[in-house]
Every structure is written in C-alpha cells, then in structure tokens.
Design a binder for these strands. Structure first.
Lengths: 247, 247
DNA sequence: ACAAGACCTTGACTGAGATCAAGTGGAAAC
DNA sequence: GTTTCCACTTGATCTCAGTCAAGGTCTTGT
C-alpha cells in the first residue's frame, strides 16, 4: 500500500508526530531502540483495527488519519468513548485484551510496536513511561470533560462543543493563528457525531441545520465548516470563552 | 481531630490501603522515603477539598471515606466525573491547577504528600510512577465505561448500573463472597446520585422506587439496600452478566 | 446515462425524563 | 413535645430529543 511506503523507511527524526507522541521525550539512543522494533500499518476508512475482547499484541501511535474508540451494548447501542488523532497512543501496556473496539474513521497510518518488546523498553527507558503517563492523564481529563458534555448538555450545546473541539484541534495541528474565521472539514459522518455525542443522527442533522440557520456556523456541502466567530460558538457550547478543552 | 490521630503515627506497613494505593509496589526503602514526607489530613462530609482552578500543592491517597470529582458549568449545571474510594489517588503530578472540584462525600482521611517532593520521588522510584500509570489507565477505563452509561443508558439502567457498581466495590473492599444476597448502604444522597448519572434527583427517586417495586432491590430506610439477585440487577443495568466495571 | 447505495435532511408524532409543586418522614434543635 | 430542617417521595404537566417515515443529493459502478 502506498501510504505505507510513504513511512516505511523514514527515520524517527523526520516523523511528523515526533514532538507529541509517546516517544516525544526520548533521547537519541532510546529512539534507536524504538526504531529497531517499530513497523508501520495502514488501515482503510471504516476498517476495525482492534475488536473489543481481542488479544492485543501490539501498541502504537496514530501517524495520520483519525481512529475512534467505541463501546457497544448487547442490544447494539453504541457510544464512542474516544477520538484518536495523529500522535495519540493506541493500546494498553500491562493488559491482555482490548476493552473497546478501535476503528479507522478515515484512512489511517499507525506506527506500531509489538507489545512485549515495548513493555520491556518501557521498564528500561523512563522517558517513555513518563510521557505515557502524561498522555494518559491528558486523556483522562478529556474523558471527564466529555462526561460533562454527555451528562448535562443539550443537543445544541453538544454539537457546538464537538465542532469547537474539532476546530481547535485542527488549528493546533495546522499551526494556524487564532484570529479570523476558522475553516475546516468535519472528519466524521453525522452518525459518528451522534455516536460521540449520545444523540441520534437525525438530531445531529437538525442541530447542525439550526446552528447554520442562526449563523453560528457556515456549511459548504455537508462537511466543510466555517466558524465566523469562535467566541459565539464557545458560548453556544456552554463553555466560558477562556476555554475548556485542550487535547 | 481524632480521625487524624488514628493515623498520624501509623507506619505504612499497617496501612489499610497499602496493597492498592499508589505505593502498593514500593520496596521497603522506597516506603521509608515516602513515610518521611507523608502527612494525614481529615475532611468532614460536604467539605470541598480542592476547588477547580486552585493551585494544587499536594497529592495523596484516600485512606477512608469517599470523595467526588465534580465539574460545574457557569449556569450551575454539575456533573460528577469520578468517585474516589479508599486507595484512589488525588492530584496530578506535572500540573499546576486542579481541573475540577474535589469534595468529601463522607467524612474522609487522606494520606498526603507535598507535590514537589512527591514529583521528585516519582522520578527516582520507578515503582511509584509505574503504579500511578496503572491506576490512571484503570481510571481512564472507568471514565469511558461511564461515558457509555451517560450517553446511552435509560434512567432505569443508569440507576441499576450505579447500584451494581457500589455493591461490587463494597463487596471487594469488605472481602465478602459473591453468593447470597448483597447488603450495603448507599454512600450517596439522591442528589449526588443524580449528579453522577446526569439525571435529576426526582428521576433518581422515581427509578429507585420502581426498582424496589419490581423486586430488583429491597430498600430499608432510604439508603440501606439489599440485592436479592445480582444477575437480575446486572440485567437491568444492560450489562452482560460477566460484568462490565471493575474499578 | 442510469442504477444503486451512502449519506444527509426534514416532517410528524411520541415518549422519557425534566420541571414545578406539594407533601412525607425522621432526626436534630429548642 | 413540638418545631425545624433536610433528604426524600409522589403527582401533574411540559418539553426536548427519539422514532418512524419520506425524500434529497452526491458518488461509484455498470
């Protein structure tokens, strides 16, 4: 696959997620060790990377694309419990089986390590363990912010929250400045948005239309979004302007 | 305060949470170092331990009692985002300010460490850092389980989920065996339950009454609960009988 | 060009849970 | 003993989001 070859022989120093990933604080010699056991894997949009309950024999970082973590009840109700963006870590050292499904939301490239060697490396290189703790604490904060969204916000506030998060993440990845209107594409279908927000896709669609009608966002097609006034959007999300989410 | 004196001079070897807390895997010499910088603090039920946004200059473990993590919106809507039981860790190494309120739900004793010395200790004693990573990953799993509850479960399922979690935690702490009816006291008011579940206290009350009427639980007074058939309760919670939450 | 199938929108109706309101029970305070 | 207070219960009504249904739009393949 050509996405694969794009990264196959790259060395870590050139890696686009180098400064944010689990390897961010590694010394050159640690990096060499990682480089020896890493391998790249590509996934197509819609593909399931890991099934809930499966043995996990690798861990890794998202290099490009977006993945989602999803929990499912027996009767089919689903809730997305995490959104993985480039540099986010997948997998759980010290646990055998996956607690939820991991799916590629878009085409995806991951930098993987077999779990055993990675765990061994972790115990000898404190920089990796330390960075992983930091990242896990950040994820925990994000999950708890999301609990407030799920538990207490209205449908309109939920949509505004999601749009503002994606907008800010996009801005931080693309290193854009904050002034002026923000423009980006939603990487999620209406159904995926609904799964994330604990809503139905109809409600998502209606609230997107409502935000558009009220001038909070502009839609060009179904996915291309412009935010003329970020403060207005934050207000609709029920967050104080200073800001809520980082991630 | 007498709760304080109960622990003030105890050494770590006798500590009731020794086997589950952040210090669980420490070697004797590491324990000595911890012992030198630890101090106990007591809080009364209802007291706020840490305010969101405050400087956090200590971290610590819950020794006895229950604390809750709560997020609040400007208009006063609140969502509980975590329940801290004995052995759970409070605070976040590497961060200056608290992201949410921490409140004592019952009378509470904590084993505290000033943040700076603890952070230094963490960088030199891998057992602490490793244990903290484990505990954080467990908390992340719990938070994500809770996202499914908040996002997709009905009021009745939410109540059944909460009751079953408290029942199992109680059983695991008290080392009871699993057979026969489970009996315990709810450590939360109806309002606190509502805050945790993203409901109103009226809905909590109604659903508790409904579960009682249907024989899923027995209530003696407002707080004393008997569960005649755990499998039945799990079924009402929408979890498959094998189990869901650990925590 | 046409068919098929995602993906999305919109409308009408329904229902679970919120809101508003009144009342109960039990423990602490006077 | 009775007043007060707090946690809780119950009822009546309302409303937001879910459900069911129909139709639109765009892409992909034949």
């Amino acid at each position: 696959m050509n996405l694969n070859s794009q990264f196959d022989h790259s060395n870590c120093a050139d890696c686009p997620i180098r400064h944010r990933a689990v390897c961010a604080h590694c010394e050159p010699d640690e990096l060499v060790e990682l480089e020896e056991i890493k391998f790249y894997r590509s996934f197509e949009a819609g593909q399931t990377i890991i099934w809930s309950g499966d043995q996990m024999n690798f861990v890794g970082s998202v290099v490009s694309g977006i993945a989602s973590l999803t929990q499912t009840m027996e009767d089919g109700r689903t809730q997305m419990v995490g959104l993985l963006l480039p540099s986010d870590f997948v997998g759980r050292p010290g646990r055998e089986t996956a607690p939820y499904d991991v799916q590629a939301t878009t085409d995806l490239v991951m930098c993987c390590f077999r779990k055993k060697p990675f765990e061994e490396l972790m115990s000898t290189t404190p920089h990796i363990a330390h960075r992983l703790l930091q990242m896990t604490l950040d994820e925990l904060d994000a999950a708890r912010e999301w609990m407030l969204v799920l538990g207490r916000k209205t449908a309109r506030e939920k949509i505004a929250s999601l749009v503002s998060i994606i907008a800010r993440r996009d801005a931080s990845v693309a290193q854009k400045n904050n002034s002026g209107p923000m423009v980006f594409d939603l990487p999620l279908t209406r159904e995926a948005m609904a799964d994330y927000l604990g809503l139905t896709l109809e409600t998502v669609s209606r609230q997107m239309s409502a935000l558009k009608k009220d001038g909070v966002i502009t839609l060009d097609g179904k996915r291309h979004v412009t935010i003329p006034d970020m403060a207005r959007l934050m207000d609709e999300a029920g967050d104080d302007a200073d800001g809520g989410f980082l991630v």
